[in-house]
Amino acid sequence: MSLVRVDALHKSFGNNEVLKGIDLSIEAGEVVSIIGRSGSGKSTLLRCLNQLESHDSGVIEINGRTLDATTMTPARLSEEVGMVFQNFNLFPHKTVGENVMLAPMVVRGERERDAARRARKELERVGLAEKFDAWPEQLSGGQQQRVAIARALALSPRVLLCDEITSALDPELVGDVLRVLEQLASEGMTLILVTHEMGFARDVGNRVVFMHQGRIHEQGDAKTLLSEPQTPELQQFISAVL
């Protein structure tokens, strides 16, 4: 059974239909890169997967459970899906350690000692163990984004959604964040990324999904798809970004 299953997903903002029937299955351990022009619906699709946007029709199942705002509380959903944002969104009034500890303590009721131990472990995983007591504003963008990843990982989600998480970073900091993702992928984490990093999509990703005008226009094995795009739209897109 697929870990994530999307069936006939539709979503409109007013009169603008952004998702025009998306079907997608993702297996546990897959690294899926969603690419496409801005406005193609890729971020909306990602945000539907954790209900930051509610869908109009269609079905989303994660780990066999149907996403439905009335039955799926944020707490319950956070066991399945984590998310990292383009702009990090760390909590500026909390230290790095507190950022990572907040949800385990508040949502899961973990004791402070346990949450702190877990937070140190996750920060070590992203290479920032020594920043536990630092404030977010003291960190570089790349470091903040790695803290955001650690914060998401502290809840042990089955899937990690990454919404253009390197787009707000200075070029020299992108590598650090991508290395963390690569390590997560090698550990078997299921990753769904909206990304412009074609190199990463090709080398680390299993699959590439190309979205165009609210539909999945083409998808397949990452290396094959990016080296031999079948549709003119994808050919055009690839030549535009490379």
Binding site: P74, G82, F85, A103, V107
Partner: peptide, 17 residues
């Protein structure tokens, strides 16, 4: 910023938390 709400939401916090 609305990103703070969203970050808290995806970490499992409901509105009041």
């Amino acid at each position: 910023p609305v990103g703070q709400w969203q970050a808290a939401r995806v970490l499992g916090l409901d509105r009041l938390r």
